[in-house]
Design a protein around this nucleic acid. Structure first.
Lengths: 128, 128
DNA sequence: GCCGTTACGCACCGATCGGTGCCTAATGAA
DNA sequence: TTCATTAGGCACCGATCGGTGCGTAACGGC
């Protein structure tokens, strides 16, 4: 808990931390993960629950999450085709761990962040 | 600690969590944050310490981090111009909190993640 | 006065991301 | 047989991101 730390944090470009950060790199990936947090959902359900995500992008997002082993796909041979997506254990650990940490942080520091952003924007335009 | 939770995680598209996730959206932002973790650094120092980041992108990254109040800029009227960048308290809290959480997660689950990724890649090409 | 270092700005470019629209496959109900 | 529903694929597009290269301003050393 200190060996890798030093190494990782000096030159993060090649660090495994990047692999973790990349899991959040695409706009909708964390959104879909969050949407699957409470229970498995079908494609359609995801689209309506999330709202604002396009059909294509949802497909791509699910593929990425599947490829990263964060989400599971289960197809049923039902009348209208039924496919359920759910978090894997790995996915759950990511959501319950780091994503919750980020959620906690934004709850704690969200106002600070907004203040800083507005102040910076103001400074930029007023320039004095 | 449960009111926002339910709301946020149902429809994350508009949630404040997005604002936090967006802080990691750009490739080099977390890298620069990590590089500033131990101590303030100059531009040049950052470039060489990070390795692989272009001059322009470093500028953009620093601007974003400044605009988000995660980083401070301090210019000295010195012989070759000297500018120090350092983490603000807000930046520190982000690095020490969520980023460390992500770091801890990848240390704990990195192998799982790699396994899942390889298995998925194999499944995709072999298709059986 | 010229040079080297440092901190930028700016123009250009290819790759990727996300959005829109259209088309197909599966399957039970009518 | 036709239809509605659901899961997806595919082509196209504009915006953005990151990379490369070049130019510039500040300032002390020589």
């Amino acid at each position: 808990m200190s060996d890798h730390e030093g190494h990782c944090y000096e030159l993060v470009a090649d660090c495994r931390l990047r692999a973790a950060i990349d899991l959040f790199a695409h706009t909708w990936d964390p959104v879909v993960l969050a949407a699957l947090r409470s229970r498995p959902r079908r494609r359609r359900e995801l689209r309506t629950a999330i709202g604002g995500i396009s059909d294509k992008v949802l497909t791509e997002t699910l593929h990425r999450l599947l490829a990263n082993g964060l989400v599971e796909r289960r197809a049923f041979a039902a009348a209208p085709p039924r496919v359920d997506y759910s978090l894997t254990d790995l996915g759950k650990s990511l959501v319950d761990g780091p994503m919750m940490a980020l959620g906690g942080w934004i709850i704690e520091h969200g106002d600070e962040l907004l203040d800083a952003q507005e102040r910076a924007a103001r400074t930029q335009s007023t320039r004095g």
